[in-house]
């Protein structure tokens, strides 16, 4: 613990005050003399974080998922993917930096990693379109996943996107077709696939790399058919703090909600106060989780995997048969 988040979310204001005080004490030349005060303050900070994060509203979780310091795909790759070799380009049009693909080792496994990348600096963010992928990103992902299947490598996908990029170019180059083809091909890709929503799971742009044998979510990630703002703008006719918050609640977009609906299979616990407060701990938890998942899916033969993957998605949804005449 101890690393400060730097940028405080609105609901974290009380924590931010304490963290300021801790920082000031730690910065003193005679900090050692103040250690007991620092310890007390740290303990109250942790208690407050536990309380705040134990009662987060869905809209607050969306903000945590979007925190500028939250670890991204590239951070996790750096943290636990050894000998990573990025593979660029879709061999059709270009190379979309909003989706990273490459070979590497996670634990004892040689894998293909596919993940959305938002970028950290302003320059990176613009280059990555803030994690909103273009069709060439989805096509790159699929091309590399087919390679993985050909050589018997499992696929690990990390989902973190507000949604696929809405623009003229992406529409001209078949954004919808690119995503649709990924859904179809991933459903029958004869190699294990494990996915984790690490931050934002925005609609089709998220699902476009999310048809997997196991799908999990980080504790404060969100996953939904539309962003709270998009939903509020349509159904409440206006997106503001209040309607966004209502929409976030209605959309059942939290990890716990998605687990209950059967959309995800598990939740990866985050460090106290969110992954952005302790990226290293978040990474080690995620690494452990991915290795566990790989252990269970690589035991099955590809045919059984594809069969079970089909059934997994086939049964999602709630339908009833009306009584005759109803």
């Amino acid at each position: 613990m101890g690393t400060s988040a730097g940028i405080a979310l609105p609901f974290e204001a009380p924590v931010a005050d304490l963290e300021d005080q801790i920082r000031q004490l730690e910065a003193r030349p005679d900090a050692a003399d103040w250690q007991s005060d620092i310890d007390t303050l740290t303990a109250s900070r942790d208690a407050m974080l536990a309380k705040l994060y134990g009662n987060l509203e869905p809209w607050d979780m969306v903000k945590v998922a979007r925190h500028p310091n939250r670890p991204q795909t590239a951070d996790y790759i750096n943290a636990f993917c050894r000998d990573f070799r990025e593979l660029h380009g879709d061999r059709r049009y270009g190379d979309d930096p909003a989706i990273i693909t490459g070979l590497g080792r996670i634990g004892p496994y040689k894998v293909l990693v596919v993940g959305h990348q938002k970028g950290r600096t302003t320059e990176e963010r613009i280059k990555c379109h803030f994690g909103c992928a273009h069709p060439e990103g989805y096509r790159k992902a699929l091309a590399k996943m087919k390679l993985a299947a050909k050589y018997g490598l499992p696929v690990v996908t990390l989902i973190d996107t507000p949604g696929a990029y809405p623009g003229i170019g992406p529409e001209e180059r078949g954004q919808a077709e690119a995503i649709a083809v990924n859904l179809l091909e991933m459903s029958r890709l004869a190699t294990p696939i494990v996915s984790v929503v690490i931050g934002e799971g925005g609609s089709g742009g998220a699902l476009g790399i999310g048809v997997a044998d196991r799908v999990d979510m980080m504790q404060y990630a969100w996953y939904s058919v539309i962003s709270p703002e998009g939903c509020a703008a349509i159904l409440w006719k206006e997106a503001n703090e209040e309607t966004n918050s209502n929409a976030a609640k209605s959309l059942k977009l939290t990890a716990a909600d998605n687990l209950e609906l059967g959309i995800v299979d598990g939740v990866v616990e985050e460090p106290l106060g969110g992954a952005h407060r302790d990226p290293a701990l978040a990474a080690s938890k995620l690494e452990r989780h991915i290795i566990d998942r790989l252990e269970s899916v690589t035991r099955l033969n590809p045919k059984t995997l594809v069969e079970q993957r089909y059934e997994r998605f086939r049964r999602l949804g709630e339908v009833h048969e009306l009584a005759s005449g109803g």
Binding site: L184, G204, L207, Y223, S224, V225, E318
Partner: peptide
């Protein structure tokens, strides 16, 4: 996709595409 079923609507995209595969 229908917003009022949120994630479950999203999953119908995967379900229908898988059936088409």
């Amino acid at each position: 996709a229908r917003m009022m079923e949120s994630g479950l609507s999203l999953m119908q995209m995967a379900k229908t595409s898988a059936a088409l595969a």
